[in-house]
Every structure is written in structure tokens, then in C-alpha cells.
């Protein structure tokens, strides 16, 4: 895994939308230590789909999961890919991060590039209230049908807490 080349190719493909990168190198093994890498890049939302498209043409990525992070003004989405699987020490995690402002929580779907992303994208829709544009199936996956709360949004904490309390009370009620 040539880290420099990987970053350079993204920088080249995305231009100004490439906001930065970070490499975390870790040493593993007690007898014959080896190195593994966690790679991070941050991209503009507008170029996010291009970034994933570039990843899919250059590599055979695996999407582990999409995580979200409510930062107050923005919601950060981390697309945790892994690249280079198939051989010993060949793989590195490759996270593409992008920021969505709370005023416009929308992001293009990547299911057209990697169909397996659907589960995780649907989860983000229900838990963060993000609009994933173009997703083939946007029903709630984990929450009940019709649930409108977004539990992982810190600004909606109160509503969530209210629902949790109502539920706990209801489950434990003694008629």
C-alpha cells in the first residue's frame, strides 16, 4: 500500500475539493513487528461522490460502515472504507470524511457505485435525519416504520429523551 500515491491520486482527481489528509501508522505484532495504517481524507460535500467514484475505479474498496458525528453546526459523516484486502498486511482503512451543514443535511447516495452501502445509508437517514439523494430504498431500517425521531442528533436530544422515557414508562407500567 503506497500511501503517498493514494493521497496524491485523490488530490489530483479532486483538486480544490480535497481538504486534507491524515495518516495514522500503528505497529502491530510482538515478535516481528509490522505496520498498519489508518488513512483519512476530508473532502467537500460537492465532490464527495466523485471521491468515492475515484476510489471505486482505482481500487476495489469495501465499505465497512458509515459513522456520523454531530458537531453542533455540522454533521460529519465518516465513510469507513478499507482498501487493499486480499493479502497479508495489504489492507488499510481509508476513511472519507465530509461535512454537512445542519441547514442542508443532504448527500448523494453511493449505492450506484457500491450497492452494499445501502444498509448504512438507510441507517444514517433515520438516525441523523440526513437526506440521501437517490437512494433506492429510504424506508426506516432499524427504527419502526413511521418513527420520526433522530436519536443521534444532539440538538434533538430532548425529543429523543422524551420518547425514551415514554417507552420505558410504557414497558414497565403495571396495570
Amino acid at each position: 500500500m503506497n500511501v503517498e500515491n493514494l493521497f496524491a491520486s485523490f488530490k489530483h482527481a479532486l483538486g480544490g475539493a480535497y481538504l486534507g489528509d491524515r495518516t495514522i501508522e500503528r505497529t502491530v505484532g510482538t515478535i516481528d513487528p509490522g505496520k498498519v495504517y489508518d488513512l483519512w481524507i476530508t473532502v467537500e460535500r460537492d465532490s464527495f461522490h466523485n471521491a468515492v467514484a475515484h476510489l471505486c475505479t482505482e481500487y476495489t474498496p469495501h465499505l465497512s460502515v458509515i459513522s456520523g458525528d454531530d458537531l453542533g453546526e455540522n454533521v460529519a459523516l465518516n465513510y469507513h472504507f478499507t482498501v487493499g484486502w486480499g493479502e497479508r498486511y495489504g489492507e488499510a482503512t481509508f476513511t472519507i470524511r465530509t461535512m454537512l451543514p445542519k441547514s442542508d443535511l443532504s448527500i448523494p447516495t453511493i449505492t450506484d457505485l457500491l450497492a452494499g452501502a445501502q444498509t448504512s445509508e438507510r441507517e444514517k437517514i433515520e438516525f441523523y435525519g440526513i437526506d440521501v439523494v437517490g437512494i433506492p430504498d429510504s424506508r426506516n431500517l432499524f427504527l419502526p416504520e413511521g418513527a420520526t425521531i433522530h436519536p443521534w442528533r444532539k440538538d434533538l436530544e430532548e425529543e429523543t429523551a422524551k420518547e425514551v422515557k415514554r417507552m420505558v414508562k410504557w414497558e414497565g407500567r403495571n396495570e
Partner: peptide
Amino acid sequence: ELCAVGPTARASGVKKDVRQDMPYLAYAD
């Protein structure tokens, strides 16, 4: 394409195993 993992992916011939691809703990030895 569907990002399958574990024995499900390996049964299809995809040589994907975290212990091999990105060793950790004693698996690195």
C-alpha cells in the same frame, strides 16, 4: 459489490479476512 464480510464472502472466493489483511493482536505473529 454488496460489501459482504466473513465466511459469507470467503465462501464466494473473496479472500477477505481482517486477521490476514490488517493483522492485529497475536495474529500479527
